[in-house]
């Protein structure tokens, strides 16, 4: 289907994070929380990266900065040399997001929800419909395009949210704990769909999770965050032989538990 083909042949821009800090001042206590402390990270075009870390380690804060909803306190986060926060409008239609809950608009049907970002970029109406329909079909929702969110199951709603994100054919695709609230089978299915769509469409994908299994099933690259988003490990899974996966899993587990890199991770 031609409407699903990526628009740009040049590929998505690289993501570069240098000395990134984010400090929140708590309104009530006046204390500051260092959510992200001097993070350095580079993500190449078309990388599919899982970021794993325990709850409260700063993942969502990093995510908000990737989207451009939060400004860095110090350091820089650049996508193709531009800041998603300062050059906010530049990234319209270039970054898309799947959130923890589906976050569909309850007054819009599945089709109209999937169309939302296309309306925002000012696409022609019939093109919007064609695109949104193609993606909903792709996600197996062809029968439900006129259903309201409350008429759909949790898994189906999240499918609509995925269709909505892919419909803009973004350079960067982000997912923050997007499957954690679903049952295991549905979550696994959706994650696989999400990843294969991301690979096919040629966008860079960053998937944030606190679940080790989810991070491992993503495959390409696993970034492990410690407290305050300290980079504990950056694992290129392809370098690990299949029979060592059990060891890898254990090593990441202990890295997360001890908030320090496990020495076994550097063996490979």
């Amino acid at each position: 289907m031609s409407v699903l083909a990526p628009e740009t042949q040049s590929g998505p821009p690289p993501i570069e994070v240098r000395g990134l800090r984010k400090v929140f001042r708590q309104a009530t206590s006046g204390q500051s929380v260092i959510a992200i402390d001097r993070l350095d990270l580079a993500i190449a075009p078309r990388d599919v990266v899982a970021i794993v870390g325990q709850t409260g380690c700063g993942k969502s804060t990093f995510f908000d900065m990737l989207i451009g909803l939060e400004a860095p306190t110090e350091g820089s986060l650049r996508i193709g040399g531009k800041s998603p926060h300062d050059d906010f409008d530049y990234f319209r239609g270039r970054i898309a997001t799947v959130f923890q809950q589906d976050r569909l608009l309850p007054w819009r049907t599945a089709l109209d929800n999937a169309k939302l970002p296309l309306e925002l970029i000012g696409m022609a109406e019939d093109e919007q419909n064609k695109r949104a329909l193609a993606w909903l079909n792709r996600l197996g929702l062809g029968q439900f395009i006129n259903a309201y969110p409350h008429e759909l199951s949790g898994g189906m709603r999240q499918r609509v949210a995925i269709a909505r994100a892919f419909a803009v054919q973004p350079d960067i695709m982000l997912a923050d704990e997007a499957f954690g609230h679903l049952d295991e089978v549905t979550a696994g299915e959706l994650r696989d769909t999400f990843l294969s769509l991301a690979r096919e469409s040629g966008s860079t994908a960053i998937l944030i999770t606190h679940q080790l299994e989810e991070a491992i099933s993503v495959g390409d690259r696993i970034v492990v965050f410690g407290k305050s988003a300290r980079l504990l490990a950056d694992i290129h899974v392809a370098k690990w032989p299949k029979e060592q996966y059990a060891l890898l899993r254990e090593a990441i587990q202990s890295t997360l538990q001890n908030n320090a890199p496990d020495p076994r991770l550097t063996q490979v």
């Binding site: 989207i67 959130f99 976050r103 803009v168």
Partner: peptide
């Protein structure tokens, strides 16, 4: 807030 944030992430005017 979740809906406002979702909307903002798609960069509306």
């Amino acid at each position: 807030r979740e809906l406002r944030q979702m909307m903002q992430s798609f960069r509306p005017t």
